[in-house]
Nucleic acid binder design. Structure first.
Lengths: 240, 240
DNA sequence: GTATTTTTTAAAGAAATTGTTTAAAATAAG
DNA sequence: CTTATTTTAAACAATTTCTTTAAAAAATAC
C-alpha cells in the first residue's frame, strides 16, 4: 500500500542506539545503512544517494557538524542531527551547518520515526507531486480530535490541556486504534529509551488522561479501554 | 509452506526448562542447541551463527546480561531474555545490554513460541523486503471472529467480553480448528509451566466460554466440541 | 436397566489485576 | 533560588478472575 523503502543512513558511535533505531525504522520499511564514525559516514553518504541521514553530533574523530558541512559541498541529502541535551542543539540546526532537523537525546523511538517520516514527506514532495494522503497530522474520532501539528487535543470542540506524557500516550494509542498495547510496550515506545521504570506508571497516566477527557465528555474517556490482563487500547465506538 | 529450520540456542541452567522449550520449539521445526551456563553459551554463540538466542538472565557464573554484552562485541544475533518476575525485567530490556525482547517467568510455552516467531519474522525482514502489514491477525469462522490485535471476539457481529484465560483458551483452540486437545495438553500449553492444577479447571473455563458464546449464538457455542474421554476441540461446521 | 465413568454445573474462597490516592522526586518556569 | 508543574512510585482499596470442590447430569459399558 505504501511506496516507502526510502534509504536511510544511521550514524552513531553507540551500537545500542543504532540497533534501537534500526529496529524501529525497519519496522516502517526503511532500508538502513549504518556508520559508527564520521569518516565512514561521510564516505558512505557521498557514495550513495540516501533519502535521509540520521547523524549523531558527538562522534569520535570527525563530529557530526563537520560531516554535515563537508557533505553539503556536494549533496543536499536531508539530515536530522541527534544531539545530547547539553550540546547547544540550536546552533546545530538550520543554516549554520545545513541540518534540516534535530532531535535531543534521550529520545523516544517513536519520536524519531515521526520526525523521519515528516522530513521524508517534506523532501519527497519536492520531487513528486504526490497526493500527500498519509500526511494528515490530524486524527479525528467521534468526540475526540488530535491535531499533532498544533499539539492540541479537542473533545467535543473543547480544548483539553494535557501534560506531555498524557498527550504522547493518547497520541500513540490513537495512531493504532483498536490495537491493544501492553504496559511494557507502551513504556518502550512512548517513554524514552533510558526509562526502565514501573509498569504501573502507565496506569497513573491513563487514569489522569481519562479524568481530563471525562471532564468534557464521558464518551471520550470511555474510548480508552482496559483489556484485562493485557493492557490498554483506544476503541472507536462505531455506534455513537 | 514455511521455510523455517532456523537455528536457536537455548540457555537455561534448569534442564527441565530447556527440555520443555526444546520440545515446543522443535515442534515448530526449529533446530535447537542447548547450554546450561553462561560460559558455554557465549562460546557456542560465538562459534556458530544462530538465528536467535533464548537466554536466561539468572545463570551460574556469567549471567545472561554479561553473556549478551560480550556477545554484542562481535555479533548482532537476536536475543530474547528470560527473566524471573522480580528480576528487574525492564532494565534488562532494550539497549542497556542489547536484548531484543524479554519474557517473564513463568511463561506459557505457547507465549515463547509466539515471541520467537515474531522476532524471527522481524529479523528476517531485513533480508527479504516483505510487507509485514499483510499478516492479519484475525481468525474468522462462521458466527465467530477473533481479532487478536484488538483482543476482541465477536459472535455474529456482537462483541463478547472474555476473561484472559477464556480468551486464550478460545484463541488456542481456534488456531488449530478440528484438532482435539486433552485437558493435560491445554493446561500445558495455555497455562504457564508452573501450573499443576486440577484438570477440571479446564472444564470450568470451557463452561463459562460456552455460556458467553451461547448468550449471543447457540451455534457459536456449539463449535466448542467435547470429545468424550479425550478433550475439547473447535469444529467448523461446514453446514451452516 | 443399572453401574461406572466422564462431563457439566454451581458456588465460594483464593489469587491476581486494576483503580485510586497520596507523597516524594524530577523537571520546568519565573 | 524559589515556585509550580509534571512524573513516578508506593500503598491500599476495589474489582475481576481463577481454582477448587462437590453434587448433578450425561454418556458409555455391561
Amino acid at each position: 500500500m505504501e511506496e516507502k523503502e526510502a534509504a536511510i543512513l544511521l550514524v552513531d558511535d553507540e551500537e545500542r542506539i543504532r540497533k534501537l533505531l534500526k529496529m524501529y525504522l525497519e519496522r516502517e520499511n526503511y532500508v538502513i545503512d549504518e556508520a559508527g564514525d564520521g569518516e565512514t559516514a561521510l564516505q558512505k553518504a557521498l557514495d550513495k544517494d540516501y533519502d535521509l541521514i540520521l547523524l549523531d553530533l558527538m562522534l569520535p574523530g570527525m563530529d557530526g557538524e563537520e560531516v554535515c558541512e563537508k557533505l553539503r559541498e556536494y549533496k543536499a541529502t536531508p539530515v536530522i542531527m541527534l544531539t545530547a541535551k547539553g550540546e547547544e542543539a540550536n546552533r546545530v540546526q538550520g543554516f549554520e551547518v545545513g541540518t534540516d532537523d534535530y532531535i535531543v537525546k534521550p529520545f523516544s523511538p517513536r519520536e524519531v520515526v515521526l520526525r523521519v517520516k515528516a522530513l521524508l514527506r517534506r523532501s519527497s514532495k519536492t520531487k513528486f507531486l504526490e497526493t500527500e494522503t498519509t500526511a494528515t497530522n490530524v486524527i479525528v474520532f467521534p468526540h475526540l480530535m488530535i491535531d499533532h501539528d498544533a499539539h492540541r487535543v479537542k473533545v467535543d470542540q473543547h480544548e483539553v490541556n494535557l501534560t506531555p506524557k498524557e498527550y504522547e500516550l493518547l497520541y500513540y494509542l490513537a495512531q493504532n486504534p483498536d490495537k491493544v498495547f501492553s504496559r511494557e510496550q507502551l513504556l518502550k515506545d512512548v517513554w524514552n529509551y533510558e526509562f526502565f521504570g514501573d509498569l504501573r506508571t502507565v496506569d497513573t497516566h491513563v487514569k489522569r488522561l481519562r479524568e481530563k477527557l471525562n471532564k468534557v465528555s464521558e464518551k471520550a474517556a470511555e474510548m480508552i479501554i482496559t483489556v484485562w490482563g493485557v493492557g490498554y487500547k483506544i476503541e472507536v465506538d462505531s455506534a455513537t
